[in-house]
Design a protein around this nucleic acid. Structure first.
Length: 287
DNA sequence: CGGCAGGTGCGGA
DNA sequence: TCCGCACCTGCC
């Protein structure tokens, strides 16, 4: 794996072994594609040495990258799954988002059980593509009902594009549309996402980073994040937040790593919150 | 009770 | 390109 030479002495040579269980025999080709998919989604191949070289010269970042050496962002799910999560996060408190996600799983997902653990699996896009808007409203999705359906529909149609080369596995959902999107330019990815109904600048920001691994993509900051950023990057009161424009300008100093840098600082704050009470932060979180 | 928060679509400047 | 409003629900 790349990227470990920089801190080999410290961390050794990390290795990850994965056991895959299946009801039917899985061929070599599938296992290899799964291996590659895990490496991508968990960013195991991400070479952080250039980022750390830069961060070590930065007063704010230096202690954080030292503490979190090797930390990398990851999203285990697919693009479609993230889109659903993004819609459920819009205009809602954490509690309400959790309620909506749980309700969707119970109504449209599949309950799986393995080794005594029960977990819900996502539905296929076509399931929600055919769902009734009224039903989703009855399940308290609010006006998100329309977005959930329309996003799902566009994925069903996207699938039709790639008839021949697309393979899908019953047991593991690997979306091959997503794989071709990964190779597209940042601009193309952005415009594709924005073309989806119910997906705007905030959701695009999260997806460009978490799903497409664009570490420099940072062009929108939501109001609640803006308040927290004002405090941690500028030591300004969350009541009088620094303007988004100024913030984005400030983050440019971290160049192609700017969003990753912001995430490291962000992660650090939440880590602190686990260990001690951070009163100003508590007020800004809508649980 | 009424007002407010929050991300997006949409229509209009 | 930017602004202001509507949308749905739950919380204060």
């Amino acid at each position: 794996m790349k990227g470990i030479k920089d801190y080999k002495g410290l961390l050794g040579e990390p290795k990850i072994y994965i056991n895959v269980y299946s009801e039917k025999r899985l061929d070599k080709e599938f296992l290899e594609s799964l291996r590659k998919e895990v490496i991508w989604r968990y960013n195991l191949d991400l070479d952080l040495s250039d980022f750390y070289r830069m961060a070590r010269k930065d007063e704010l970042l230096k202690p954080i990258v030292t503490k979190f050496c090797g930390l990398r962002p990851m999203h285990a799910g697919s693009l479609y799954e993230y889109l659903i999560i993004a819609i459920v996060l819009q205009n809602a408190t954490v509690k309400r988002s959790v309620y909506m996600m749980q309700t969707l799983f119970e109504r449209y997902g599949t309950l799986l059980e393995f080794a005594g653990q029960k977990l819900y699996c996502f539905w296929e896009p076509k399931v929600l593509a055919q769902a009734s808007e009224q039903k989703l409203r009855d399940l308290k999705m609010g006006y998100r009902a329309k977005s959930l359906i329309k996003v799902s529909q566009s994925f069903v149609e996207e699938k039709n594009y790639l008839t021949k080369n697309s393979r899908s596995c019953k047991f593991c959902k690997i979306d091959f549309d997503e794989i071709s999107l990964r190779k597209k330019s940042q601009k193309e990815q952005e415009s594709f996402l924005l073309s989806l109904y119910g997906i705007g600048s905030a959701s695009v920001g999260y997806i460009m980073f978490d799903v497409f691994h664009q570490w420099d993509f940072l062009k929108y900051i939501s109001p609640w994040e803006q308040k927290i950023y004002s405090k941690i990057f500028f030591n300004r009161s969350p009541n009088k937040p620094v303007s988004m424009k100024k913030m984005l300008k400030y983050f440019e100093k971290w160049g192609k790593w700017r969003n990753l840098a912001v995430h490291y600082v962000w992660e650090n704050i939440w880590w602190q919150r686990r260990n001690k009470n951070v009163p100003w932060l508590e007020k800004l979180i809508r649980l």
